[in-house]
Design a protein around this nucleic acid. Structure first.
Length: 827
RNA sequence: GCGGGCGUGGCGGAACGGCAGACGCGCUGGACUUAGGAUCCAGUGGGGUUACACCCGUGAAGGUUCAAGUCCUUUCGCCCGCACCA
C-alpha cells in the first residue's frame, strides 16, 4: 500500500482500465428500471471550462448514484458540432477547414472529459456535423415541411452584421446578437421558418406535465410565449374601401378612442397617403423609423413621435371619425400592427395624447370617485364601470370586454382573438457550417423537397470561406446547380443552412439508437428510454434550446415518431461559476482553467470542490483555497485507510448486534451518514451537504482509529470504511476505486450496490434536550430517547437550575417537543 | 415598469417553525519537526467576565406564535429574465 496519494497515477490507471473493459457501456434494454440522465451537450470549442466541469460533475454524481441504486442508467455524451466559431476560424486563419477544426476540438474535449472521469457510454457518442446525423436533421425538416410546419416567407429579420447571418428572435438580446453583442439590424429577406406559434397553446398547457422543472424556467417560457386575449376590431377608412384592423386587450374602452395609430411599415400606409400631397413627408418619417436599430426602436427611453396621415377612420360603435396616424412606437410584428388610442385608460396613449392634443375621454369610472378628463394626471387603467358608452353604460368593465366583443362579432366588425408574443422560429442561416436545408427550387415545379432517398444533402468540402454575408454554398456552383427531383429539369439548391438549435432539438432521441440507419432512431428504443428523467444544464437555455426541444417533441409526438409529450421530466439548472464575484471571462482575466486544476490536484479534487462549494442551482464562487481544502480531504481519506489496509482485509463482515460504547457509536455515525447522503443526493440534489456529511464520517473515523485495537470491533471499522468509500464513489470515482481495490475487492466499486442504512443502528439511547424558560435556552439535559412528554417535564422541573430560575414564578404553560425541548412559560 | 430569485461570522455556505453558524476555508494557540506552506490537537459571531453568569445577533421595521433565519405585512439593497406587446 502506497503511503502517499498519487492522484496522477491513480486517475490515469483507472481511466485506462475503465476504457479497456468498457465499464460504462449501457445495454439497450434491461429488467431494471431505466433512468435517462442527460447533461446538455457542449459546443466543441476545444477547451472545457469550469461551467462544463460543474455541469458534467453534477450529472456524473446523479448517473453513478442511480446506477448504484440498481437502475439501468443511460448517460451519453455528444457534440453540438455545427456553428459559427468553426467557420470563423476558417475565415480568420484560412487553410483550416471547419470540419477538421471541429473534429480536432472534439478529440481534445473528449480527452478532457475522460480525464474528469465522467461515466459516459462513449459507444453512443454523436456529433451533429456527422453526415449520418445531419441526414436525419434534414429528414426531420422534411417531416415538418410536409406537415406545413416549415415555410419560407419574406420578412424583416434580425441581421447580425458581424456574424453575417440572420438570427432568431430568441437569439437577439437587448437588441444585440447573443453571440457577439453586435447591434442587430433589420433586413428584408426570404427565410425559412418553423411554425412554433401553432404550438403556442400546447407549449403553455403542457406545463402542467413539468412538475420537475424549476418554476423560474416555466415562468420565463410563459412570458416568452406571451399569450394575451383580446379582440380584433375593424375600422372603416372614411371615404375609402379599406379597413384597418386593430388588436386590443381592452375592447371595453372602444368608446374612449380619440385617435388611431398604424405602424410606419404598415402595408396600408402607402395606399392611404396616395395623392394626399404629404407623401414625401411621410415616407421620410417611415424611412427614419425603419433605419433605427432594434434597440432604439423598442427602447422606452425614446420619445414617442407620431405623424397624422390626414385621413380618418370610423369607430364602429360610435360612428365617430377619428384621425389616423403613424408613430414610431407601434410595431408591425405584434397584433395587427395597428393600435387604438384611448388616452383616458392607457398610460402610453395618455402621454401621447397630451403631447399632440388629442382629447381624453373617460369611459371607465371607478366606484366612489368621478374621473374628470381635464384633471387627470395619468391614465386610469384599473377596473370600473362603463360610462359614455351608449348601451354598455353601467356594465363592470370586465363584463363589457365580453359584451362589446360579442356585439362587434354579431355586427361582423370584430372578433375574439388570442395573440402571442412568440414569433415563428426563423431557422435559415446564411452560413456554411450547418445542415443544408434540403430544398430544391425549380423554375417549372417551384419549391421541391429533396426526396428522402437522396439524403443527406452533403456539405461540399472545398468551398471558399469569405465573410460575404451570403452562404459560401451560394458561391459554389457544384452545390447550387442540381436537377429537379420532380421533372428532371435544372434546379437550384437552397443555400442556407439550418440554425444549430434545430440540430440540438432532437439529439437526446438519437442517443437511444445512435447507429440507426433506417430512421432517426429506433422507435422501440426511444420509447424505452425517453423521456429524459433528469436533464442538467445552464439556465441560459431556458428559452432557446428548451423551448425548441419541447416544440420538436410535440411535433414528433404528432408524427407518431415518439410517444412522450414532453422531452425532459426533471430539469436542473445549474448556477454559474464565478471568480471574484463575476462570471469567468477572458476579458476580465478571471478564468480558471480546468486543465490546470486537474494537473495540480487531479480530477477527483476538482469534482469534489465544485460539488462542495455551493448547492447546484446557485452561483458558485471559485476559491483556490477551497480547492486546496478538498485536496486535503481526499489525502485525509487516503491516509485514514492506508495504514488499515491489512486490518480491513482480515476484518470479518459479520452482522453486528448488541454493540456497546464506541463501537455502537461508530456504527451509528456510519448509518446516519448513509441516510443523510442518500437523502441529500436523491431528494434535493444537495451535493454540498452530502459531501460535508462524508467529511464528518471521516472525522469520526479518525477518532475511532485512535481507539485501542482491543476495544475496536474490526467489523465495525470495515463497515464504516466501506460505506465511506461507497458514498464517496460518485463524487470521487478514481480514488475510491483505487482504495476499494487496495482493500481487497476484485470488482469495481462503481458496480457495487449503494449502501442502505439500518434504522435500528441510528436509534439513540439518550438525547440532549433543551430546557427553555420563556423561550430562552436556560439549560440542557441528557434524557433517555423517546421519553414521554410527562416524564420529560417531570425531570426538567426537578432540575436544580430550573428550580432556581422558576422559584417564586407562576408556571403558565409548558410546551414539550419529544426528544427536543421543554419550554416553560412563567410569569 | 412587470415577473422571478437572493440578503446569515473574515469568506464559501448549514439549519422538518424548536440549541443559529454543520462542513470547509481563513485565522489564533499548541504538538511533532533541522524546517513547515506537511500532519495532528484545541480554539474561533459580537459584547461581557480571571472564569462563569448574562446580554446582543440572520439587510431594516412591524406582526403571528410558547418559540421566527424560516410564516405574514411593509421597506431597503443586489442579481437574473422580459420590457413601448397595444
Amino acid at each position: 500500500m502506497k503511503v502517499k496519494y498519487d492522484f496522477n497515477e491513480v486517475e490515469k490507471k483507472w481511466q485506462d482500465r475503465w476504457d479497456e473493459i468498457d465499464l460504462y457501456a449501457v445495454p439497450d434494454y434491461s429488467d431494471r428500471p431505466k433512468y435517462y440522465c442527460l447533461e446538455m451537450f457542449p459546443y466543441p470549442s476545444g477547451k472545457l471550462h469550469m461551467g462544463h466541469v460543474r455541469n458534467y460533475s453534477i450529472g456524473d454524481v446523479v448517473a453513478r448514484f442511480k446506477t448504484m441504486q440498481g437502475m439501468h442508467v443511460l448517460h451519453p455524451m455528444g457534440w453540438d458540432a455545427f456553428g459559427l466559431p468553426a467557420e470563423n476560424a476558417a475565415i480568420k486563419h484560412g487553410g483550416i477547414h471547419p470540419a477538421d477544426w471541429t473534429i480536432d476540438n472534439i478529440d481534445k474535449m473528449r480527452d478532457q472529459l475522460k480525464q474528469l472521469g465522467i461515466s459516459y457510454d462513449w459507444n453512443r457518442e454523436l456529433a451533429t456535423c456527422d453526415p449520418e446525423y445531419y441526414r436525419w436533421t434534414q429528414w426531420l425538416f422534411l417531416q415538418l415541411y410536409h406537415r406545413g410546419l416549415a415555410y419560407k416567407r419574406l420578412s424583416a429579420v434580425n441581421w447580425c452584421p458581424d456574424c453575417a447571418t440572420v438570427l432568431a428572435n430568441e437569439q437577439v438580446v437587448n437588441g444585440g446578437c447573443e453571440r457577439c453583442k453586435t447591434t442587430v439590424e433589420k433586413r428584408e429577406l426570404a427565410q425559412w421558418f418553423f411554425k412554433i406559434t401553432s404550438y403556442a397553446d400546447r407549449l403553455l398547457q403542457d406545463m402542467v406535465l413539468m412538475d420537475g422543472w424549476p418554476e423560474k424556467v416555466k415562468i420565463m417560457q410563459e412570458n416568452w410565449i406571451g399569450r394575451s386575449e383580446g379582440a380584433e376590431i375593424d375600422f372603416q377608412i372614411e371615404g375609402a374601401e379599406d379597413i384597418i384592423t386593430v388588436y386590443t386587450t381592452r375592447p371595453d374602452t372602444v368608446f374612449g378612442i380619440t385617435y388611431m395609430v398604424l405602424a410606419p411599415e404598415h402595408p396600408l400606409v402607402e395606399k392611404l397617403i396616395a395623392g394626399s400631397g404629404k407623401e414625401a413627408q411621410i415616407r421620410d418619417f417611415v424611412r427614419k423609423v425603419k433605419s433605427l436599430s432594434e434597440i432604439d426602436r423598442t427602447s422606452t427611453e425614446v420619445e414617442k413621435v407620431g405623424l397624422p396621415l390626414g385621413v380618418n377612420c370610423v369607430n364602429p360603435l360610435t360612428g365617430e371619425k377619428v384621425p389616423v396616424l403613424i408613430a414610431n412606437y407601434v410595431l408591425l410584428e405584434y397584433g395587427t400592427g395597428c393600435v387604438m388610442g384611448v388616452p383616458a385608460h392607457d398610460q402610453r396613449d395618455f402621454e401621447f395624447a397630451r403631447k399632440y392634443n388629442f382629447p381624453v375621454r373617460v369611459v371607465i369610472q371607478p366606484a366612489g370617485v368621478t374621473l374628470e378628463a381635464d384633471e387627470m394626471l395619468s391614465a386610469y387603467e384599473e377596473e370600473g364601470f362603463l360610462v359614455n358608452s351608449g348601451r354598455f353604460n353601467g356594465l363592470p368593465n370586465k363584463e363589457a370586454i365580453k359584451a362589446i366583443t360579442a356585439y362587434l362579432e354579431e355586427k361582423g366588425q370584430g372578433r375574439f382573438r388570442v395573440t402571442y408574443r412568440l414569433r415563428d422560429w426563423l431557422i435559415s442561416r446564411q452560413r456554411y457550417w450547418g445542415a443544408p436545408i434540403p430544398i430544391i427550387y425549380c423554375d417549372v415545379c417551384g419549391v421541391v423537397p429533396v426526396p428522402e432517398k437522396d439524403l443527406p444533402v452533403l456539405l461540399p468540402m472545398n468551398v471558399k470561406f469569405k465573410p460575404t454575408g451570403r452562404s459560401p454554398l451560394a458561391d459554389y456552383p457544384g452545390f447550387v446547380n442540381t436537377t429537379c427531383p420532380k421533372c428532371g429539369g435544372p434546379g437550384k439548391r437552397e443555400t442556407d443552412t439550418m440554425d444549430t438549435f434545430m440540430c440540438s432539438s432532437w439529439y437526446y432521441y438519437r442517443y437511444s439508437s445512435p447507429g440507426e440507419t433506417e430512421g432517426p432512431w429506433d422507435k422501440a428504443k426511444v420509447d424505452y428510454w425517453l423521456p429524459v428523467d433528469q436533464y442538467i444544464g445552464g439556465v441560459e437555455h431556458a428559452i432557446l434550446h428548451l423551448l425548441y426541444s419541447r416544440f420538436f417533441t410535440k411535433v414528433l409526438y404528432d408524427l407518431e415518431l415518439v410517444s412522450n409529450q414532453e422531452p425532459f421530466t426533471n430539469l436542473l439548472t445549474q448556477g454559474m461559476v464565478l471568480k471574484d464575484g463575476a462570471k469567468m471571462s477572458k476579458s476580465k482575466g478571471n478564468v480558471v482553467s480546468p486543465e490546470d486544476i486537474i494537473a495540480r490536484y487531479g480530477a477527483d479534487t476538482a469534482r469534489m470542490f465544485i460539488l462542495f462549494a455551493a448547492p447546484p442551482e446557485r452561483d458558485l464562487e471559485w476559491s483556490d483555497q477551497g480547492v486546496e481544502g478538498c485536496f486535503r480531504f481526499l489525502n485525509r481519506v487516503w491516509r485514514l485507510v492506508a495504514p488499515l489496509v491489512e486490518t480491513l482485509k482480515k476484518a470479518p463482515r459479520k452482522r453486528v448486534a448488541n454493540l456497546v460504547g464506541i463501537n455502537r457509536e461508530m456504527r451509528r455515525v456510519t448509518h446516519k451518514t448513509i441516510k443523510k447522503v442518500t437523502e441529500d443526493i436523491s431528494a434535493r440534489f444537495n451535493f454540498n451537504t452530502a459531501v460535508s456529511a462524508i467529511m464528518e464520517l471521516v472525522n469520526a473515523l479518525y477518532q475511532f482509529k485512535e481507539v485501542p485495537e482491543s476495544d475496536r470491533d474490526p467489523a465495525i471499522l470495515r463497515e464504516a470504511v466501506e460505506s465511506l468509500l461507497l458514498l464517496l464513489a460518485p463524487f470521487a470515482p478514481h480514488i475510491t476505486e483505487e482504495i476499494w481495490e487496495m482493500t481487497g475487492h476484485a470488482d469495481s466499486i462503481h458496480l457495487q450496490a449503494w449502501p442502505v442504512y439500518d434504522p435500528a443502528a441510528i436509534v439513540e439511547d439518550e438525547v440532549t434536550i433543551v430546557v427553555q424558560i420563556n423561550s430562552k435556552v436556560r439549560d440542557r439535559m441528557l434524557v433517555p430517547a423517546g421519553l414521554a412528554a410527562a416524564q420529560m417535564q417531570e425531570r426538567v422541573l426537578k432540575d436544580p437550575k430550573i428550580l432556581k430560575l422558576t422559584a417564586g414564578k407562576k408556571i403558565v404553560k409548558t410546551i414539550t417537543v419529544p426528544d427536543k425541548l421543554v419550554n416553560i412559560v412563567v410569569k
